[in-house]
Protein backbone atom coordinates (compact mmCIF):
# COMPACT_ATOMS: atom_id res chain seq x y z
CA UNK A 1 0.00 0.00 0.00
CA UNK A 2 1.16 3.51 -0.77
CA UNK A 3 2.39 5.43 2.29
CA UNK A 4 1.11 8.83 3.32
CA UNK A 5 4.53 10.31 2.62
CA UNK A 6 4.47 8.95 -0.93
CA UNK A 7 1.01 10.46 -1.44
CA UNK A 8 2.30 13.89 -0.37
CA UNK A 9 5.31 13.57 -2.66
CA UNK A 10 3.11 12.48 -5.57
CA UNK A 11 0.72 15.35 -4.89
CA UNK A 12 3.58 17.85 -5.14
CA UNK A 13 4.63 16.44 -8.51
CA UNK A 14 1.17 16.12 -10.04
CA UNK A 15 0.11 19.61 -8.96
CA UNK A 16 2.51 21.00 -11.56
CA UNK A 17 0.25 19.69 -14.33
CA UNK A 18 -2.54 22.07 -13.28
CA UNK A 19 -3.19 25.31 -15.11
CA UNK A 20 -2.26 28.43 -13.17
CA UNK A 21 -5.86 29.22 -12.25
CA UNK A 22 -6.68 25.66 -11.17
CA UNK A 23 -3.42 25.37 -9.27
CA UNK A 24 -4.26 28.53 -7.30
CA UNK A 25 -7.72 27.26 -6.43
CA UNK A 26 -6.55 23.77 -5.52
CA UNK A 27 -3.49 24.83 -3.49
CA UNK A 28 -5.55 27.24 -1.39
CA UNK A 29 -7.89 24.41 -0.54
CA UNK A 30 -5.02 22.03 0.15
CA UNK A 31 -3.39 24.49 2.56
CA UNK A 32 -6.72 25.10 4.30
CA UNK A 33 -7.56 21.41 4.73
CA UNK A 34 -4.03 20.48 5.84
CA UNK A 35 -4.05 23.25 8.45
CA UNK A 36 -6.86 21.36 10.23
CA UNK A 37 -4.27 19.31 12.07
CA UNK A 38 -6.68 17.21 14.15
CA UNK A 39 -7.94 15.41 11.05
CA UNK A 40 -6.55 12.00 10.15
CA UNK A 41 -3.46 12.68 8.05
CA UNK A 42 -4.01 9.56 5.99
CA UNK A 43 -7.62 10.45 5.17
CA UNK A 44 -6.58 14.05 4.40
CA UNK A 45 -3.92 13.04 1.90
CA UNK A 46 -6.15 10.42 0.25
CA UNK A 47 -8.89 12.99 -0.20
CA UNK A 48 -6.49 15.64 -1.54
CA UNK A 49 -5.14 13.10 -4.05
CA UNK A 50 -8.68 12.17 -5.14
CA UNK A 51 -9.58 15.82 -5.65
CA UNK A 52 -6.35 16.47 -7.55
CA UNK A 53 -6.88 13.50 -9.88
CA UNK A 54 -10.48 14.62 -10.41
CA UNK A 55 -9.35 18.12 -11.25
CA UNK A 56 -6.66 16.86 -13.65
CA UNK A 57 -9.16 14.65 -15.43
CA UNK A 58 -11.69 17.48 -15.57
CA UNK A 59 -9.06 19.88 -16.83
CA UNK A 60 -8.56 17.62 -19.86
CA UNK A 61 -12.28 18.03 -20.60
CA UNK A 62 -11.95 21.80 -20.34
CA UNK A 63 -13.49 22.13 -16.86
CA UNK A 64 -12.15 24.56 -14.25
CA UNK A 65 -11.75 23.99 -10.53
CA UNK A 66 -14.67 26.37 -10.04
CA UNK A 67 -16.88 24.26 -12.32
CA UNK A 68 -16.03 21.16 -10.31
CA UNK A 69 -15.86 22.34 -6.70
CA UNK A 70 -18.08 25.42 -6.87
CA UNK A 71 -17.58 29.15 -6.51
CA UNK A 72 -16.97 29.17 -2.77
CA UNK A 73 -13.89 27.03 -2.04
CA UNK A 74 -13.93 27.75 1.70
CA UNK A 75 -17.55 26.66 2.10
CA UNK A 76 -16.85 23.56 0.03
CA UNK A 77 -13.73 22.72 2.06
CA UNK A 78 -15.70 23.17 5.31
CA UNK A 79 -18.34 20.78 4.01
CA UNK A 80 -15.68 18.17 3.29
CA UNK A 81 -13.86 18.73 6.58
CA UNK A 82 -17.08 18.19 8.54
CA UNK A 83 -17.20 14.62 7.17
CA UNK A 84 -13.50 13.78 7.59
CA UNK A 85 -12.42 11.27 10.23
CA UNK A 86 -10.33 12.66 13.09
CA UNK A 87 -6.82 11.49 13.83
CA UNK A 88 -6.76 8.72 16.41
CA UNK A 89 -6.01 9.94 19.94
CA UNK A 90 -3.06 7.56 20.16
CA UNK A 91 -1.49 9.02 17.03
CA UNK A 92 -2.07 12.56 18.27
CA UNK A 93 -0.32 11.68 21.53
CA UNK A 94 2.61 10.00 19.73
CA UNK A 95 2.95 13.07 17.51
CA UNK A 96 3.11 15.30 20.59
CA UNK A 97 5.78 13.12 22.19
CA UNK A 98 7.74 13.06 18.95
CA UNK A 99 7.69 16.88 18.81
CA UNK A 100 8.80 17.18 22.45
CA UNK A 101 11.73 14.81 21.89
CA UNK A 102 12.71 16.68 18.77
CA UNK A 103 12.65 20.11 20.46
CA UNK A 104 14.47 18.84 23.57
CA UNK A 105 16.98 16.97 21.40
CA UNK A 106 17.97 20.11 19.50
CA UNK A 107 18.10 22.07 22.78
CA UNK A 108 20.48 19.59 24.38
CA UNK A 109 22.62 19.39 21.24
CA UNK A 110 22.83 23.19 21.08
CA UNK A 111 23.94 23.30 24.72
CA UNK A 112 26.58 20.63 24.05
CA UNK A 113 27.86 22.39 20.96
CA UNK A 114 28.06 25.83 22.61
CA UNK A 115 29.80 24.51 25.72
CA UNK A 116 32.08 22.38 23.56
CA UNK A 117 33.26 25.32 21.48
CA UNK A 118 33.60 27.57 24.54
CA UNK A 119 35.59 24.92 26.42
CA UNK A 120 38.44 25.35 23.94
CA UNK A 121 38.60 29.05 24.76
CA UNK A 122 38.00 29.12 28.51
CA UNK A 123 36.99 26.80 31.34
CA UNK A 124 33.21 26.26 31.34
CA UNK A 125 30.67 25.29 33.97
CA UNK A 126 29.38 21.92 32.80
CA UNK A 127 26.79 21.56 35.56
CA UNK A 128 23.08 21.29 34.99
CA UNK A 129 21.04 23.19 37.60
CA UNK A 130 17.78 21.32 37.92
CA UNK A 131 15.45 24.23 38.73
CA UNK A 132 16.97 26.53 36.10
CA UNK A 133 16.86 23.75 33.53
CA UNK A 134 13.25 22.87 34.33
CA UNK A 135 12.22 26.52 33.93
CA UNK A 136 14.00 26.77 30.59
CA UNK A 137 12.59 23.49 29.26
CA UNK A 138 9.06 24.50 30.30
CA UNK A 139 9.45 27.91 28.62
CA UNK A 140 10.83 26.45 25.38
CA UNK A 141 8.14 23.75 25.12
CA UNK A 142 5.38 26.23 25.88
CA UNK A 143 6.67 28.76 23.36
CA UNK A 144 7.03 26.06 20.72
CA UNK A 145 3.45 24.94 21.29
CA UNK A 146 2.13 28.52 21.19
CA UNK A 147 4.22 29.28 18.10
CA UNK A 148 3.08 26.21 16.18
CA UNK A 149 -0.59 26.79 17.05
CA UNK A 150 -0.36 30.47 16.07
CA UNK A 151 1.29 29.62 12.78
CA UNK A 152 -1.36 27.01 11.94
CA UNK A 153 -4.04 29.55 12.82
CA UNK A 154 -2.53 32.19 10.53
CA UNK A 155 -2.26 29.67 7.68
CA UNK A 156 -5.85 28.60 8.24
CA UNK A 157 -7.17 32.17 8.33
CA UNK A 158 -5.27 33.39 5.27
CA UNK A 159 -5.55 30.31 3.01
CA UNK A 160 -8.09 31.92 0.69
CA UNK A 161 -6.89 35.52 0.79
CA UNK A 162 -6.33 36.94 -2.66
CA UNK A 163 -3.23 38.91 -1.82
CA UNK A 164 -1.40 37.21 0.99
CA UNK A 165 0.06 40.01 3.11
CA UNK A 166 3.41 38.35 3.68
CA UNK A 167 5.02 41.49 5.11
CA UNK A 168 2.44 41.64 7.90
CA UNK A 169 3.16 38.04 8.82
CA UNK A 170 6.91 38.75 8.59
CA UNK A 171 6.66 41.71 11.00
CA UNK A 172 4.50 39.83 13.52
CA UNK A 173 6.83 36.84 13.23
CA UNK A 174 9.94 38.96 13.69
CA UNK A 175 8.58 40.84 16.70
CA UNK A 176 7.40 37.67 18.43
CA UNK A 177 10.75 36.05 17.65
CA UNK A 178 12.57 38.88 19.43
CA UNK A 179 10.15 38.72 22.39
CA UNK A 180 10.57 34.96 22.76
CA UNK A 181 14.34 35.24 22.52
CA UNK A 182 14.21 37.96 25.19
CA UNK A 183 12.11 35.69 27.42
CA UNK A 184 14.67 32.89 27.12
CA UNK A 185 17.56 35.27 27.86
CA UNK A 186 15.62 36.58 30.85
CA UNK A 187 15.10 33.09 32.24
CA UNK A 188 18.74 32.21 31.59
CA UNK A 189 19.83 35.39 33.40
CA UNK A 190 17.45 35.54 36.38
CA UNK A 191 17.16 31.78 36.92
CA UNK A 192 20.88 31.19 36.87
CA UNK A 193 22.26 28.31 38.93
CA UNK A 194 19.06 27.49 40.81
CA UNK A 195 18.41 24.08 42.32
CA UNK A 196 20.64 21.06 42.83
CA UNK A 197 23.44 20.69 40.31
CA UNK A 198 24.52 17.61 38.42
CA UNK A 199 27.55 17.28 36.22
CA UNK A 200 26.62 16.98 32.52
CA UNK A 201 29.67 17.33 30.25
CA UNK A 202 29.25 18.79 26.77
CA UNK A 203 30.12 15.51 25.03
CA UNK A 204 27.38 13.73 27.01
CA UNK A 205 25.03 16.57 26.07
CA UNK A 206 25.71 16.04 22.35
CA UNK A 207 25.22 12.31 22.74
CA UNK A 208 21.96 12.56 24.70
CA UNK A 209 20.59 15.11 22.23
CA UNK A 210 21.45 12.82 19.34
CA UNK A 211 19.71 9.88 20.99
CA UNK A 212 16.62 12.05 21.57
CA UNK A 213 16.48 12.98 17.88
CA UNK A 214 16.81 9.32 16.92
CA UNK A 215 14.01 8.48 19.31
CA UNK A 216 11.85 11.20 17.81
CA UNK A 217 12.48 9.76 14.32
CA UNK A 218 11.66 6.28 15.53
CA UNK A 219 8.36 7.44 17.04
CA UNK A 220 7.53 9.28 13.81
CA UNK A 221 8.04 6.12 11.78
CA UNK A 222 6.09 4.04 14.27
CA UNK A 223 3.29 6.61 14.11
CA UNK A 224 3.11 6.55 10.33
CA UNK A 225 2.91 2.75 10.35
CA UNK A 226 -0.15 2.74 12.62
CA UNK A 227 -1.97 5.71 11.10
Amino acid sequence: MVTTKELIQENNEKREQLTEENEQYYTNMLVYIRSKFLLSERATEELLMEMLEHLLEGQKDGKSAENIFGGDPRAYADEVIAQMPKEKKKNQLLFGIQLIFSVLGWMVIARGAILGVLSFIKPVDEHLYLASTAAMVAAVLMMTAVGVLLLINVVNKTAFEEKKSTWKVAIVGGVSGVLVFGLFMGIAFFFKERGPAIEFPWVASLLVGFVMLLLSQWIARKNEATA
Binding site: A43, L47, E50, M51, E53, H54, E57, G58, K63, N67, I68, F69, G70, Y76, E79, V80, A82, Q83, M84, P85
Partner: peptide, 27 residues
Protein backbone atom coordinates in the same frame (compact mmCIF):
# COMPACT_ATOMS: atom_id res chain seq x y z
CA UNK B 1 -13.68 5.99 -8.45
CA UNK B 2 -14.67 9.60 -7.89
CA UNK B 3 -14.50 10.98 -11.40
CA UNK B 4 -16.26 7.96 -12.82
CA UNK B 5 -19.01 8.26 -10.23
CA UNK B 6 -19.72 11.90 -11.01
CA UNK B 7 -19.69 11.15 -14.75
CA UNK B 8 -22.20 8.31 -14.22
CA UNK B 9 -24.51 10.54 -12.18
CA UNK B 10 -24.39 13.18 -14.90
CA UNK B 11 -25.08 10.64 -17.65
CA UNK B 12 -28.15 9.53 -15.73
CA UNK B 13 -29.39 13.10 -15.94
CA UNK B 14 -28.51 14.22 -12.40
CA UNK B 15 -26.43 16.98 -13.87
CA UNK B 16 -27.10 19.92 -11.62
CA UNK B 17 -25.15 18.76 -8.61
CA UNK B 18 -21.66 20.15 -8.92
CA UNK B 19 -19.15 17.33 -9.31
CA UNK B 20 -17.39 18.12 -6.07
CA UNK B 21 -20.57 17.37 -4.12
CA UNK B 22 -19.81 13.65 -4.27
CA UNK B 23 -16.75 13.90 -2.00
CA UNK B 24 -18.53 14.93 1.21
CA UNK B 25 -21.08 12.21 0.37
CA UNK B 26 -18.38 9.56 -0.16
CA UNK B 27 -16.73 10.54 3.13
Amino acid sequence: YGYELSAKLQQLGLDDVSEGTIYPVLL
